[in-house]
Amino acid sequence: MDLLIQYTLVFTSVLTLVALGGCFSEHSGVINIGLEGIMVIGALGGSLVLKYMSVTTPAIWVVLATVGVAIAAGVIYSLLLGVASITFKADQTLVGTAMNMLGVAAATVVVKSVNIAETMGSNNSPKVIYSAVKDKLLIVQGTEYSWFLIFALVLLIASYIVLYKTKFGLRLQACGEHPQAAASVGINVLKMRYAGVMISGALGGLGGIVYITAGVSQWSFDVGVAGFGFLSLAVMIFGQWKPVRIVLAALLFGLFRALGSVYTGFDFLNNLNIPKSVYNMLPYIVSLIVLALTSKRSRAPKAEGIPYDKGMR
């Protein structure tokens, strides 16, 4: 039971972080299907830091460096979406899809090349192993309670305040609802959209490293992040693009995802003899059903997905 709570909390924080990322991007008017790819790249950056950290480094530096690099990697990678869809008005779904494929391919190439270089070609696996310093991320040893949970909580509160209590949040949302109105009062729509996309890159990148350090100490990058970016999008839609509701949605999805990881620890679940793949499917099935029930009255930002054109009125 304790394990279930731990995993639920970890997965909930990942889903919350990434869904909040999607939320910022979409509030600025850009659909970010590429969150999955952003997560992969963030995870790659963070895990490489972990891999090369020496065991003697103080825990605080390990945590900060990992988070910093994961966020930076996510932000830089998200610029691919920004440049294509904001500056060059490309189809946002197409570019996002390309970024997801590129994320996995690039991460695999990087990790394999690193492994090949280190072992003179004898190891060409797509795995990064970071078992040596992973424990330094934890607050309570022997559990899954890591510093990341605190980050997630802080960022959640910050997101709420930024969106609803600041000048920036007001302007950002205006760009996603009615960019022409924003432009008419002198707001630079393109700049705000870049900001939205880059924030989503930061949160997505952070979510990526949190995800791949949950319960494991190595990661095989050829599977990306196993659809977690997409689940986060579902969480965002279910959360109606609002931070507080997003957490609640993330809790629900996180619980189902955690069940898949720890169901063997429950006797009654074990006795049911349900194949593992059913547990793997659960979060996706749940999200599909939830979406079917809630999408009719969805309140997506009105201008999302539409490139901003100065000439349009």
Partner: peptide, 25 residues
């Protein structure tokens, strides 16, 4: 495969899709 990962090809096709986004422009 002792020196290059074959996923280079995936990388190239992913970049090609990405660039397809610029075709309209």
């Amino acid at each position: 495969t002792q020196s290059y990962p074959p996923q280079i090809a995936d990388l190239i096709s992913a970049i090609i899709i990405y660039l397809c986004g610029f075709v309209l422009f």
